[in-house]
């Protein structure tokens, strides 16, 4: 028998297939998260046009503002892919710059969301008021929670980058954080299409009471 002693370091690339276990874990987790967001999106679609009282999407949603925040999140995806690229090439200055940009853009996105939520709340749209509110707020706030978690993770990695712990050798750590970040981005792509663009013109559904609170 060959002296094939695989020395194992727990959570490192320690396997017989040559595939990074961490990356495999992240992809499997993303597959699982697909079902998580899928259920919320399905809830939203199933309850579309089922609210009995206002405010309805056409009374509340503000597409221009959300478009800007969508664009910010999209571009943060570019940022992290560049950060990873430069990290792999050991160009640390650019790597740090882009990672910082991603964090700023992420915080910007959360800022937009906080603004949006408080704006809605001032208008009288809360999770308690109708089905649209319930489904909209749970979906967007859980997405926001994912983004916030991602921001914390990236800040942690940025600190490591400054301390010299994150370098081209262990770029895999940034790569899996990047996978997570991209996933949050593609979820937002779907949310932006379904929750905002497609439903934004939905008015009073059959059997619903028109909303009288103004903008």
């Amino acid at each position: 028998m060959s002296t094939n002693v695989t020395i194992q370091h727990g959570e490192e690339i320690n396997n017989s297939t040559g595939v990074s276990a961490k990356k495999l874990l992240m992809w499997t987790f993303l597959g699982s998260d697909v079902m998580f967001f899928g259920t919320f999106i399905a809830t939203f679609m199933a309850y579309r046009n089922k609210s009995l009282v206002g405010p309805y999407p056409e009374d509340t949603l503000n597409i221009p503002i959300t478009s800007v925040s969508t664009f910010v999140l999209l571009m943060s995806s570019l940022g992290i892919v560049l950060a990873l690229h430069y990290l792999k090439e050991a160009r640390m200055g650019l790597a740090k710059f882009w990672l910082l940009m991603v964090i700023i853009m992420g915080i910007g996105f959360i800022g937009f969301q906080i603004y949006e939520f408080s704006h809605f709340a001032n208008m009288g749209m809360t999770p308690q008021v109708n089905l649209f509110g319930s489904t909209f707020f749970t979906l967007t706030s859980l997405h926001g929670a994912h983004v916030s978690l991602g921001i914390l993770w990236l800040i942690f990695l940025l600190i490591n980058e400054y301390r010299g712990n994150l370098n081209s050798e262990n770029a895999i750590d940034l790569e899996i954080a990047g996978l997570y970040w991209h996933f949050v981005d593609i979820v937002w792509i779907v949310i932006f299409a379904l929750l905002y663009l497609i439903t934004a013109n939905d008015g009073v559904p059959p059997g619903g009471i028109p909303w009288i609170g103004g903008h």
Partner: peptide, 9 residues
């Protein structure tokens, strides 16, 4: 979705 998944990811 496909672009991000295929190229960025």
């Amino acid at each position: 979705f496909a672009l991000v998944v295929a190229f960025f990811m």
